[in-house]
Write a protein that binds this DNA or RNA. Structure first.
Lengths: 337, 337
DNA sequence: TTGTAGGCGTTATCAT
DNA sequence: ATGATAACGCCTACAA
């Protein structure tokens, strides 16, 4: 008899035990005679009993819900990363509640819901909610994990991609390829990630610049997506001097750039101009782009973020941690090894 | 004084009213003197009070949480659609809980969580959980919306893209362009959507075939993604007879096909061979592909799905509805208007 | 090992 | 219009 919404009391009645015994039976750490437990499980099974998380949450004061805060999913890397996060959260016995804060008008309402639902933790993957928000959660006792953000002073745990290293790898590869007129390109409204990548790139090159071996400059496109890349290519092609090596802080910008370049037909990669992207989104590997890029593993980042959360749930009062996820260069057609 | 976790009782004490008055103050449909309400709001504000959804859920027996069931997010259209759903759910005062059921080993655990959390509704966008699962939810009193699935007999509300019409539009466009050796290509393990698109395409052409005006055949690739497309192109190019017009049931397959074609250089689009995709994922518009395709608006689908859910929440006992979302042909370079 | 009882924070019912 | 009180389903001392 599959009763629509059986409670633990129903199970207790059917199994001939007390309600608390039923409750205990589902707690692995509770010592209960194997016989009783089986009896309870059988009854629960028969009734289709499932624990009521709302009631459980009231007592435990944690819901096992994890808020995944993001600003949009249009950017392919964001969506790949969110997918990794969802899977990782699920694999840890937690449930993902997704919060998109790209709409500034409703952002407060979205954030309120995070506290209303007694979330066990919050993983913020977007720059949008400022650090004050993170601190407010922490003050309420909700662990916060910050992913790829600038806040170093925070009381929250931090997981960062090694953005600096990404820039360094790109710089080294271009030097090794013998390129000497270099550029680094990112969106005018840059994220922390992009800015740090650019800085890593520039810093790695500065000794060479000082020795007069090569030149580098920083350039910007209007938006951090495909269209930004095409627009940048148009501008560059209209200018007097071309670089012979460019590091784009996001793959999607690089893809737009490559498409415009191909259409223009004057410059060929990697001979006239070498191109390196960053992220290794899936289309970077498509034949049309075949983009040499710095890969960041969204899976590794997700694992680090959820693992940091789990640690903090177990030990709430330890000092905040910081974790840098390593990156690697993937050679493809726009800069040969 | 921003108390960490203020309850309505705390607010009541500070405002000098009863706890039930506080509760009522936050219910717009409750008639309360404006003066008291302001007093309560002020106190709530001071304490940083937020309603405890767990307690609310216990008594209301609904959590305002909506389960979004999907199988993976790798496919670009899936992820664009999920994004639309998240936004739409949020805009309706509900919260999205994402459930990825792509891992068959844990699918039961994931589905259990749906009932544990007392979800207000479930939107299933994947073929994976069979119809029995949907019926189980409905029996428990949880509304289920099925999106782009085959189940017509279900007791659930259904939102479908007009997949048949998508096939028809593609067929008509190819005929108008004067193509006569046609093909429709989809993954060997096809979704309901793809199968219906192919059928719409074939049915629309059958009168022409009978009159001997043209030929059509059905072809399959090994996987429903970019790689499936390249593989299909390779096979086709190795065969004796080429079609002069192909309808791919998914954009990403078409993109793989186009890339391989470009590399081979023997056949040019749209002259030698016209190509039409389906979905209008964002890369379809990229210059490298410039793919003529049948657009399905993920936003429209999301709106229809959430609206169906809202309707059912208000009127649980009405007959299940079915909604078809219209599609349109977007002309680009692989088949000119 | 098991049962009893109290309480988590809210909404809803019934008085006043 | 407002206040008291009884649930909602579960966990967790405490007792046995």
């Amino acid at each position: 008899m599959h009763k629509p919404n059986a409670t633990s009391a129903d199970v207790a009645r059917l199994a001939g035990v007390s309600q608390s015994t039923v409750s205990r039976s589902f707690d692995p750490s509770s010592r209960i005679s194997e016989k009783t437990r089986q009896k309870v499980f059988a009854a629960a099974d028969e009734l289709g009993y499932q624990v009521n998380k709302a009631a459980q949450t009231m007592i435990r004061k944690r819901s096992d819900l994890v808020g995944l805060v993001t600003a949009g999913l249009g950017d392919p890397f964001r969506s790949e990363f969110l997918h990794s996060l969802v899977l990782e959260v699920q694999n840890n016995g937690l449930r993902p509640m997704v919060i998109d804060v790209s709409d500034k008008h409703t952002i407060d309402i979205q954030l309120q819901s995070l506290v209303q639902y007694q979330l066990s933790g919050v993983i913020i993957t977007s720059g949008t909610p400022n650090e004050a928000v993170a601190k407010a959660f922490i003050k309420r006792g909700t662990p916060v994990i910050l992913v790829n953000r600038a806040d170093y002073s925070s009381e929250a745990d931090i997981v960062n991609l090694d953005n600096t290293q990404a820039g360094v790898l790109a710089a080294e590869a271009l030097i090794k390829a013998g390129k000497s007129r270099l550029q680094v390109v990112r969106s005018r409204v840059s994220s922390y990630s992009s800015a740090t990548r650019a800085k890593g790139f520039l810093d790695a090159l500065s000794p060479y610049v000082e020795r007069g071996v090569l030149s580098v400059d920083e350039a910007f496109c209007d938006s951090g997506n495909y269209d930004g890349g095409t627009q940048y290519a148009t501008d560059m092609l209209a200018s007097a001097h071309y670089p012979d090596g460019i590091f784009f802080c996001m793959d999607c910008i690089a893809c737009g750039f490559l498409d415009e370049l191909k259409q223009d037909r004057r410059l060929a990669t990697p001979t006239d101009i070498a191109v390196i992207g960053c992220d290794d989104i899936s289309i970077a590997g498509y034949k049309s782009y075949n983009l040499t890029t710095v890969r960041q593993s969204s899976q590794k980042m997700a694992e680090a973020a959820v693992s940091a959360l789990q640690t903090r749930l177990k030990q709430p009062n330890t000092a905040p941690t910081q974790h840098n996820v390593s990156v690697e260069l993937v050679y493809r057609g726009t800069l040969l090894k």
